[in-house]
């Protein structure tokens, strides 16, 4: 079977798993193409910062919240790219239990950080919307309303 697998790749790892489960399977170029690691997102961080720029007339609180949300998205993109790299490495070394264990542990911690950043982004964007609506609703109220 080693003649069918000249290099190690995620497809090879899957092939090994399949071979263990159902016997020898011919290597598929389609499967190899499916599990190729994508290119890292080089420009998406700046795009996020541009999209989350505060609109004109925004209050100071809304600006701070949107700026922070953009920072969270920046960090999320960087960390999620690293998480993706770890995932592919885990798939590559799935037949090496000790290496896979090390990567799986790290992957679990990194996944919790990406979850934290995504949740925090959601909270900050929700808070910015709340501040905007509060500003609108209180602008139409009586001046002495609290």
């Amino acid at each position: 079977m080693s003649s069918l697998l000249p290099t190690r790749s995620p497809a090879d790892a899957l092939h090994v798993l399949n071979a263990r489960a159902v016997g020898p399977v011919a290597a598929s170029p389609l499967r190899a193409a499916t599990f190729e690691s994508p290119a890292p997102p080089a420009t998406r961080a700046s795009d996020a910062r541009r999209v989350l720029a505060a609109p004109p007339g925004a209050s100071a609180a809304e600006k701070v919240l949107l700026d922070l949300a953009a920072e969270q998205v920046d960090s999320f993109l960087v960390v999620s790219t690293a998480e993706q790299r770890l995932s592919y490495r885990l798939l590559e070394q799935i037949d090496d239990h000790r290496a896979a264990l090390v990567i799986a542990r790290a992957l679990r911690q990194v996944a919790s950080i990406t979850g934290l950043l995504a949740h925090r982004t959601q909270e900050l964007l929700g808070a910015a919307e709340t501040v905007r609506l509060q500003q609108r609703i209180h602008a139409g109220g009586r001046p002495h309303d609290d």
């Binding site: 960087v78 960390v79 690293a82 998480e83 790299r85 770890l86 490495r89 090390v102 990567i103 542990r105 790290a106 992957l107 911690q109 990194v110 950080i113």
Partner: peptide
């Protein structure tokens, strides 16, 4: 620190 963790794990 997360990136350091990833580098160390790899």
């Amino acid at each position: 620190s997360t990136l350091d963790l990833v580098t160390a794990a790899l």
